[in-house]
Write a protein that binds this DNA or RNA. Structure first.
Lengths: 349, 349
DNA sequence: ATTATGATGGACATAAAATGTCCCGCATGA
DNA sequence: TCATGCGGGACATTTTATGTCCATCATAAT
């Protein structure tokens, strides 16, 4: 049995095991690196409140890993030994948390969740990604929320993993956008309905093509029943969306070749909830939609992005730069790509 | 890096979490063994209150390790898998807690603390034993308590590990008994004074030989200053004492050969705070003392025994049977000996 | 020598979580 | 059909965690 397996087992019984372990490890390490340090400065350098830190240092003192006296705190021999023994473990154990934190901070997100593996390569990772997405979504959902979901294989995966542990009757799932030229399973409509069925929630459909000319848009919006559901969609409190490669998505949606070329020229890289972004997160291509618009996203309380696979790293980074997401759920490979982009950015500046 | 190293680290860094982990593990195991069981009967069989158990089962249900429905609880597939995977690790993770609990229950103690190793073999273990003793003592001490301490090398170890982290000015350390024929370092007087100095507390000496004839006793007790300190000693709220082998101690104290023979004939096995016990915890040899008497012990609020080493296992068990201790601090080897004695006892009955 | 700084630890109000208790409706099996 | 034992809801109460402020002490610079 190896270390990872043990941790995985322990985490089932104690989900925040790693969180606590990491917290205490970082305190210990910071104290060691500082030789001698006071509580207040330690608290700020670890970004903890003073009182919480104090509870931990009191604990570490009781364990005799820290020595605390009137002059401040320093690490004990036992503490030093513990740190040395933990060092090789640290990376293995917390590599992902470290990554999460880095990405979270850089893009100013509320939360980043990374599952290990590469969705491009492994079915297991895709499933894990789905599960992680479910967990995030479940946590975000209240008692009577409107949740807008986009299409795509990743979102379909989320839908399939969702379980009805706590029946969320009052919630309403809606598609974020209209119908696309994709396969039925990956349609936003399909996914919204699956999610609703699996959680015992309600759902509404939007039976309108996503891509509309101005005339068609205007006339459709005259229809009371279309108009009503569109308004519900636009008032969603939660949005969960995938992220795709711009060119792949454009073709899948049968966008005009000339438009595709124009977007390409403008540096379109990523696609999400129907919009196309360049590497800086700027919107490259706008179009009329009966679904969720950019301005709606900005008002949405919780925007969850979910996408994985090394090939999507760049696209994810682009959408994150757009800056209106709150939570990102991704996998290790994509996260590493994103981290590389961040590093490059930071060294250029 | 192997699993055992990780466990060792966790035991230092998160002992509190491991306690929780063990609790959940035991619940899961009990449910598995019971096939299907209700909350109330589970609570009694685990000796937990219903509400506490409920909090845990709710958690385990959320983790999908337990299936709960109107008919009762049963273990899920994932739960079963978890138990199987954890089984080989259980001993490494919780072996000592298990031992502690077993000994605690058998002798009806309040708390048992076991440090790993064998004090007979290892200096490190002796030191650990001292540290653990300190921790227990520190927890027991209030703001103005009288603490009676006996002599012996183990208690000397405790004294040397005690630290003045929380200055306990109002407390008073006194020797439990008078002077013995031992070396100065192991005298109760010496230890009491060391402890007091190291914690910033007060101390009083008892300059009287422990072993007294009736005449000498009577006349000494006429002395007001002797009488006064003796009364303080006998009113101690806390007693911390070592445990020794009867014969070894008798010789060290230069007890008359004829008396030694008599004690031997009566099955004297263990010695503690000046009294000799046989294997059943019965007092074999009583003598007049200016220090703490048996009847004082019975009134003492907190009686802490501390002793380790495989060779002392039997003696410790004997004194525990005497039944007036509240806390036992020992080491792994002694604890294993004690457990063996318990098992033999239980199978005989 | 003295003053200023920054340290810990105590104290305490308040927020949050854990716990004890009681009771309800429901399935199951006698 | 009824009684038993089940889970789970509700709520008062206790315990614990947290934020905040301050007293006191050690240290270093003046």
């Amino acid at each position: 049995m190896n270390v990872h397996a043990l941790i995985a087992i322990q985490q089932q019984l104690l989900p925040d095991l790693l969180v606590v372990m990491r917290k205490r490890y970082l305190i210990l390490r910071q104290v060691m690196l500082s030789d001698m340090i006071g509580r207040r400065s330690l608290a700020t350098s670890l970004e903890m409140t003073e009182r919480v830190l104090r509870a931990e240092t009191d604990f570490l003192k009781a364990q005799e890993l820290l020595i605390i006296d009137a002059a401040g705190m320093r690490i004990s021999e036992a503490g030093k030994r513990l740190l040395e023994e933990m060092e090789p473990l640290y990376k293995a154990m917390f590599g992902l948390s470290e990554l999460e934190e880095k990405i979270r901070k850089y893009f100013g997100l509320q939360q980043v969740v990374i599952v290990s593996g590469d969705s491009d390569e492994s079915l297991v990772t895709r499933r894990e990604l789905g599960r992680a997405g479910c967990a995030v979504l479940a946590k975000a959902m209240g008692n009577s929320d409107v949740v807008a979901v986009t299409g795509g294989s990743t979102l379909a995966q989320v839908a399939n993993q969702l379980s009805s542990q706590t029946p969320l009757k009052g919630n309403l799932f809606v598609p974020a956008r209209g119908g696309l030229g994709e396969s039925l399973d990956y349609q936003a409509n399909t996914i919204a309905s699956t999610m609703a069925k699996r959680t015992g929630a309600q759902y509404r459909m939007l039976h309108v093509p996503d891509h509309l000319g101005e005339e068609a848009y205007t006339s459709l919006m005259q229809e009371p029943n279309v108009r009503e559901i569109v308004e519900v969609i636009r008032s969603a409190r939660i949005v969960i969306h995938g992220i795709g490669d711009a060119m792949v998505m454009a073709r899948r949606r049968r966008v005009d070749d000339t438009v595709v070329e124009a977007m390409k020229a403008e540096g379109a890289l990523a696609e999400s909830f129907g919009y196309y972004f360049d590497r800086n997160g700027a919107v490259v291509h706008k179009m009329l939609t009966a679904g969720l618009r950019l301005e709606d996203i900005m008002d949405t309380e919780v925007v969850i992005a979910i996408a994985g696979g090394r090939s999507k790293g760049e696209a994810i980074a682009a959408v994150m730069r757009f800056g209106h997401d709150d939570v990102l759920v991704t996998d290790e490979s994509a996260a590493l790509e994103i981290a590389a982009i961040i590093d490059k950015e930071l060294s250029n500046v």
